[in-house]
C-alpha cells in the first residue's frame, strides 16, 4: 500500500493509505482524545472529542473517521479544540448522574480520567438530574443508565464482534437510551449470550459485573482485541 506523508502538530509523519488520522497519530505517539472509538470495532464519529483542525478545511474533522491525505496538515491540540473538548465533557457530566464516589468504575473510568486530565473540577452548566433506572435483571451483569454516555461501544461490540445483536439504541435526543432486544429487561433478552463483551467495552460504570462494588470494576480490553485480531488477521495471539 502506498504511504502518505502528512504533518500532525508540525511533526512530519507517514501513514498507510486508507489509515485514519487517529491511526496515523497513534503510530506517531500523538494522543488524540476519544470516547466513542474502540479499537477493533468500526467508528461512528459520535462523541466529537477527536475533532481536529486540518489546514484549508473550514470544518473541524473527526480524526477517527477521516482518512489521511497526502500533504495534510493536522492540528490536534489548539486552544479552540481544547475549549470544545472541555465543554463537551462538562455537557456530558451535567447530562446524567455521574457520581464517582459511589461508582463501580471509580478510578477505572475513561470519562473520569479524561475529566481529570483536563482539570475539570467543576461544571459550568446546570445539572439535569434526570431520573434513570438501573437494570439488574441479568444473571451476571447490570446496567446503570445514570452513567451511560451513549457512546454505543456496547452496541457495536454486541453486533460486530459477538454477533448477538442484543444491544441497541431507542428513543432520541436526551431520551435516547441503550436497550436490550425489543426494549426488554436484559435478563429476558433471549439473544444475549452473556459473553460480557459490552461490559468490557463500556468506558464508564454504566455496564458492570454484578457483585463488584465501588471502584472494583477493572476492564480487560485485551480480550476484545484478541477476538478481533483472531478474526481479521487469523492470528490467535494473546496480547499482554
Amino acid at each position: 500500500m502506498a504511504a502518505k506523508t502528512l504533518t500532525i502538530n508540525g511533526l512530519q509523519i507517514s501513514a498507510e493509505e486508507g489509515a485514519t488520522i487517529l491511526q496515523a497519530a497513534d503510530e506517531a505517539n500523538v494522543k488524540i482524545p476519544t470516547l466513542c472509538h474502540l479499537d477493533g470495532v468500526y467508528d461512528v464519529g459520535a462523541c466529537r472529542l477527536c475533532l481536529v483542525e486540518v489546514a484549508g478545511v473550514p470544518k473541524l474533522l473527526p480524526a477517527c473517521t477521516t482518512k489521511v491525505v497526502e500533504g495534510m496538515e493536522v492540528k490536534t491540540d489548539t486552544e479552540r479544540l481544547r475549549k470544545y473538548r472541555r465543554m463537551t465533557l462538562e455537557l456530558l457530566l451535567a447530562e446524567r448522574n455521574h457520581v464517582c464516589a459511589v461508582c463501580v468504575a471509580n478510578g477505572h473510568c475513561e470519562l473520569q480520567a479524561f475529566a481529570w486530565s483536563l482539570g475539570i473540577d467543576h461544571v459550568r452548566y446546570d445539572y439535569c438530574f434526570p431520573k434513570w433506572s438501573v437494570d439488574n435483571t441479568h444473571r451476571l451483569f447490570g446496567m446503570d443508565h445514570n452513567r451511560c454516555i451513549l457512546c454505543t461501544r456496547c452496541v457495536r461490540v454486541c453486533w460486530h464482534i459477538e454477533g448477538a445483536g442484543t444491544k441497541n439504541v431507542s428513543g432520541r435526543g436526551g431520551h435516547a437510551r441503550i436497550i436490550s432486544d425489543l426494549n426488554q429487561p436484559w435478563g429476558e433478552a433471549d439473544s444475549c449470550t452473556s459473553c460480557g463483551k459490552c461490559v468490557q467495552a463500556c468506558p464508564t460504570g454504566a455496564l458492570f459485573h454484578k457483585g463488584s462494588t465501588v471502584a472494583e470494576m477493572e476492564r480487560d480490553r485485551s480480550k476484545l482485541e484478541f477476538i478481533v485480531t483472531a478474526r481479521e488477521k487469523k492470528q490467535w495471539i494473546a496480547s499482554d
Binding site: 462523541c47 472529542l49 451535567a94 439504541v169 432520541r172 435526543g173 435516547a176
Partner: peptide, 16 residues
C-alpha cells in the same frame, strides 16, 4: 426534541 442523540454536542448542547 428532534436531535437524534447520536453526537454529544447536539444532544446535550441543545438541552443546555
Amino acid at each position: 426534541d428532534e436531535s437524534c442523540g447520536k453526537c454529544i454536542p447536539c444532544r446535550t448542547g441543545t438541552v443546555q
